[in-house]
C-alpha cells in the first residue's frame, strides 16, 4: 500500500518535472547565440525577470504572449551588446521594481531585506534576557513583602513548635 503510494508520487513528480523542462526548452530553442557568454547572460536574465502578466513565473518559464515579447526584447538587447544592468533597467523603467526578482534596497523594500535580521535579533534578545533573569534569581523585596515574609516565617516556626509539643 505504502509502496504503491510512493511509486505513484515519484511518477507524478517525474511527469511534472519533465513537462516543465519540455515547456522550458520550447521557450528557449528559438533563440540562437554565436557567443556562449551572451547565451549565458540571456539564460540568467530570463530566470530573474518576472512576467508581469503571470506574476509568479519568470519570463523564462511562462508561456504568456507577453513573456515571449519580453524574451524577444531581452534577446534583441543582448544581441546588440546590452549589459545585464541595461536590460534590467529597461524592464524596471516600464514595469517597475516588480519586474525584477531581486528587488533593490529602497525605503519601500527595506522590510524585505532587514525583516529576517530584525526577527533573529529580537529572538536572540528575548532568549538572552530570559537566561539572564533566570541567573539573577535574587529578588529584592519591598518592605511590605519583607514583613509578609517575616510573619510567614514566624507562623511556620510557631507551627513547628506546636507540632513538636503536641
Amino acid at each position: 500500500m505504502m509502496r504503491s503510494f510512493i511509486t505513484m508520487l515519484l511518477v507524478a513528480i517525474g511527469v511534472a518535472v519533465s513537462s516543465w523542462s519540455i515547456a522550458y526548452a520550447a521557450n528557449l530553442e528559438t533563440y540562437k547565440f554565436d557567443d556562449p557568454k551572451k547565451e549565458a547572460l540571456f539564460r540568467e536574465l530570463i530566470d530573474e525577470l518576472r512576467c508581469p502578466k503571470c506574476q509568479n513565473q519568470t519570463i523564462g518559464d511562462s508561456d504568456a504572449p507577453l513573456a515571449k515579447d519580453l524574451r524577444d526584447r531581452t534577446y534583441m538587447m543582448i544581441q546588440q551588446g546590452a549589459s545585464k544592468q541595461e536590460v534590467v533597467d529597461y524592464m524596471v523603467a516600464r514595469y517597475g521594481d516588480f519586474a525584477y526578482y531581486r528587488p533593490p534596497v529602497k525605503l519601500s523594500t527595506v522590510v524585505l531585506w532587514l525583516g529576517p535580521v530584525v526577527v533573529i535579533l529580537v529572538g536572540a534578545g528575548v532568549i538572552l534576557m530570559r537566561v539572564r533573569s533566570r541567573n539573577n534569581a535574587e529578588v529584592e523585596l519591598s518592605e511590605q513583602e519583607q514583613a509578609q515574609l517575616a510573619t510567614l516565617r514566624d507562623s511556620e516556626s510557631s507551627d513547628s513548635k506546636q507540632d513538636k509539643s503536641s
Binding site: P52, L66, D69, R73, R94
Partner: peptide, 12 residues
C-alpha cells in the same frame, strides 16, 4: 507587434 505597448508597460 505590441512594441509601443511594451514601452508603456502594458501587460494586458
Amino acid at each position: 507587434r505590441g512594441m509601443v505597448a511594451l514601452d508603456f508597460g502594458v501587460y494586458g
